[in-house]
Design a protein around this nucleic acid. Structure first.
Lengths: 152, 152
DNA sequence: ACTAAAAAAGATATTTTTATCTTGATTTAT
DNA sequence: ATAAATCAAGATAAAAATATCTTTTTTAGT
């Protein structure tokens, strides 16, 4: 559904939301390590996310990535839009370009509600709301160490 | 979500379900034309679907593809499984290998019901049930001629 | 038998996505 | 100032998905 790039991006941003701030920056190596994602690929990705103002970075010793207050106010949808493009959740399941409620493909009414619900969820909650919820409900972010939150 | 190959496969099979039978076979050229899919690619795909017993073919003049009675009893899910693999609808939305109800990723409860519903819908209805429904409710298979059904 | 129509099979090409590598620029701390 | 750490930028590589091309096999009709 989402590209790998997009999945990595979401996970990285949620990770940064939980563990970083302007006084505690985190380097690519650490992030890639924690999330078990390919490091150079993630580096490129974070570069792009920085350019798009979805994350913030500083160079030099003690530099790294973090989420600014402004970054925290973005939504998951902003990430998806940035990486996978704005049409990720409004495309026809069977690839037809003119599939709508009035002219539905055979699976339109199966898929459409799903897509709408996900879109709404992703659009209406901020990253910081997501991360509060992650903390409150013990959700999983990492592969390597998937109860990382419990030992914080 | 689904690969192009899989979308083409589903559309082709629904098309064959509607318009073909053992006495009325349809060639690749016609199918590709009607569905506006790349013809040589579709040829390969139909080859594979034939090998997998999801469609039936005969060679020679007046040969072509059709759905046998047995083929009509398959489900959309059988197609997805064959082309995109059996894990298409039970993978974590964020790509985690250990995301489940007991250990959910941050978007698990947003995505999981959706995936389950689609899976159920695709698994529990036969191709022929789908095509009856297409006829009853005027659904769309092709772009080229997207009220094709109405003029039958 | 011969011809033409059609799918099957196998080889090749293109594009996109994923991933890596190398070099350059910036910044902190000494 | 210099060195080391860290991101930025650009080039390259590998893999997967998509698409095409060519040849072979089968079969119906003549």
């Amino acid at each position: 559904m989402l590209s790998n790039a997009c999945k990595y991006a979401i996970r990285s941003i949620l990770y940064l939301s939980l563990y970083s701030d302007k006084t505690k920056k985190i380097g690519v190596k650490k992030i890639a390590d924690e999330l078990e994602t390919p490091q150079p690929f993630l580096a490129k990705l974070l570069q792009q996310l920085t350019k798009s103002k979805l994350v913030t970075s500083t160079k030099g010793p003690n530099g790294g990535f973090y989420l600014s207050e402004a970054n925290q106010k973005n939504s998951i949808w902003d990430i998806v839009e940035n990486i996978d493009g704005p049409n990720k959740f409004n495309q026809c399941f069977l690839g037809l370009s003119k599939c709508e409620d009035e002219n539905p493909c055979p699976v339109h009414y199966i898929a459409a509600p799903f897509k709408n619900k996900i879109l709404a969820n992703f659009r209406d909650k901020t990253i910081s709301q997501f991360s509060s919820e992650i903390i409150d409900t013990d959700k999983v972010l990492s592969l390597k160490d998937y109860d990382a939150l419990k030992q914080e």
